[in-house]
Design a protein around this nucleic acid. Structure first.
Lengths: 241, 241
DNA sequence: CAAAGATGTCTATGTCGATAGACAACTCGC
DNA sequence: GCGAGTTGTCTATCGACATAGACATCTTTG
C-alpha cells in the first residue's frame, strides 16, 4: 500500500495518534506505563514504522507521551475531574485539584437578548443582557473558552467587575448574590474550530466538550447562562446523582 | 497557496467540514436555514471553492445538510437530548423522543473483576462479574457501543437474559430488581477508534462522548457499571440539578 | 563487554490533496 | 424572459503523505 486516506480526510499518522490517545483516555494505556514498540504498533495498525513515529512525535510534543531513546515510549498524562452538580464553580473545582484557576476577559458588550436567550434567562424579548467572552485556565493551561450572558438590568457592568475579579462567583457577589445554583447543564461533543483552536492551544481536529448551562439564584430566578467549549483532552465531567 | 496541512494531519476540506459541523452543533447555523454560498465560505476560510465543495459533500452524505442546485445548501440535522439523572434508562429516553430503542448483544463472558471494577461494584478483588458488550440503536441508527459489568453471583447468566430482552432494565427486573438509580456518571470526549468507527457507522476522526457510570439498587448497593462510547453527532446529554 | 532491541535520521519513490481556471446547468427576482 | 447568483463537473499542476530500505545511536540484559 502507498497512500490510502480512505475518504476520511485524516492523515494516516493522525488516525494512529488518535487511536493511541483514545487508548490513553480509555484506560488501555495507563499513566507511567510503557507503550508497545514502534514496530509492534506499526504492525498492529498495518502501517509503516515512519507513520507511527510521526504519530508518537505529535503526542510527545503535546506532552501526552515521552520517548526514551533505546528504551521505549511512556505515557505521561491525566485528566482533571470536573464535577457537575448544583454547586458548580470553576475556580473552586480547579483550586480543589491543587491547581491555580484564572479567568481572562476576552471581550464583552451589552446586547438585546435573542428569543432563545430571553427564554433561558426569563426575560422579555430584546431585553438587554451583558455578554462576557472569557478564557479560563488552570495553572496557565487553557481549559475552556466560553460566553456568559447575564440580565443587564440586574447586573449592570458585570463585565467590568469580571475583568478585575477574574471570577464569576466574585462578580455575582458584587451584586449581593452570595450563592447560586446550577439548574441545567447540556453536554455535547464536537471538533474544535479554528478560533478555539488558537485560544485553547489545541490542534485542529481535537475533540471539545460543548457545555450549555443555566444558573439560578436561591429564589429560583435565572441569573446566568453560559455556552462554553472545554478541551476534552484536559477535562472529564463527573455527575453524581 | 498549494497544500498546507499545517502539522495537523487533517485535510483542509475536513477542517472546513468540521468547522461547519461545529457551527451547526453550536447553534450558529440553525436547522432549516441556508448556509452561506460556496464562494463565500471559501473566502471565509481562505480556501478554494473545490475544497469547500468537498467539505459540503461529506456533510450532505451524512445527512447533515442538503444542497439544492442553483439555490443553496440547507441545514437538516438535530441531536437527540439524552437526560442524565438518577433515573436514566436508554430505552425510556429513546422511546420518549418518539424513536424505537434497540439493544444488540455483541459479546459477553464471565470474568474475574480487576481492582478498579471490584471497587466500583463493591466486590472483593477477582470476584466474578458478567461482562456484556452491546450496541444500542434508535430507529436502527447506532447511538452507542459499550460494556456493562454486573456481579455474577447476584446476576448469574445476565448476558443470556439481555440477549433476549434487549434491555438492561428488563434484564434487572428478571432478578427482582424492579428499580435502580444512577449513582455517578463521568463524561469525557475523545476521537473514535477504528473498531467503534465501524460499529457506530462514523467517519474516522469523529468525536465521541465517553461515559462511565455506576448504578445502585434502592438499598444503595452497586449492581451495574458501564463504559460506553456515544456518537457525539447524534446525542447531547442534559443534566438537571 | 557483547548482543538484542529500542529510538533517531537519512534518501528515494508513487499517490493523493489542494489549487487554478473554465464552463454547464439550474433557481430566483426583476 | 433575462441576468445575477448558485451548485455541478471537467482538466491540469505542484507539494505533502505514506511507503521502502538502510544505518546510526542509545539502553537493557545477560
Amino acid at each position: 500500500m502507498t497512500y490510502q486516506p480512505a475518504e476520511s480526510g485524516l492523515a494516516l499518522w493522525r488516525r494512529v495518534a488518535d487511536a493511541i490517545e483514545s487508548g490513553i483516555a480509555g484506560g488501555k494505556y495507563q499513566a507511567g506505563t510503557r507503550l508497545p514498540g514502534e514496530l509492534e504498533i506499526a504492525e498492529q495498525f498495518g502501517v509503516h514504522r515512519h507513520t507511527v513515529r510521526r504519530a508518537l512525535a505529535t503526542l510527545a510534543e503535546r506532552g501526552l507521551v515521552r520517548a526514551e531513546r533505546g528504551s521505549g515510549t511512556y505515557v505521561e498524562a491525566q485528566r482533571i475531574a470536573y464535577p457537575i452538580r448544583s454547586r458548580t464553580r470553576f475556580s473552586e473545582i480547579i483550586g480543589t485539584s491543587g491547581r491555580e484557576a484564572d479567568g481572562r476577559l476576552i471581550d464583552s458588550s451589552v446586547e438585546p437578548a435573542g428569543a432563545d436567550l430571553a427564554k433561558k434567562l426569563g426575560l422579555k424579548a430584546n431585553a438587554p443582557v451583558v455578554r462576557i467572552d472569557m478564557l479560563r485556565q488552570a495553572n496557565r493551561v487553557p481549559i475552556c473558552v466560553g460566553t456568559s450572558w447575564l440580565p443587564a438590568e440586574r447586573f449592570p457592568a458585570a463585565d467590568r467587575i469580571y475583568k478585575t475579579t477574574r471570577s464569576m462567583t466574585k462578580t455575582l457577589a458584587h451584586f449581593e448574590v452570595t450563592d447560586y445554583r446550577r439548574a441545567v447543564t447540556r453536554v455535547g461533543a464536537a471538533l474544535v474550530d479554528a478560533a478555539d483552536c488558537a485560544a485553547l492551544d489545541l490542534r485542529p481536529g481535537s475533540p471539545i466538550l460543548l457545555v450549555e448551562s443555566v444558573d439560578h439564584d436561591l429564589n429560583g430566578d435565572p441569573i446566568l447562562t453560559t455556552r462554553a467549549r472545554f478541551a476534552a483532552e484536559r477535562i472529564e465531567f463527573v455527575i453524581e446523582s
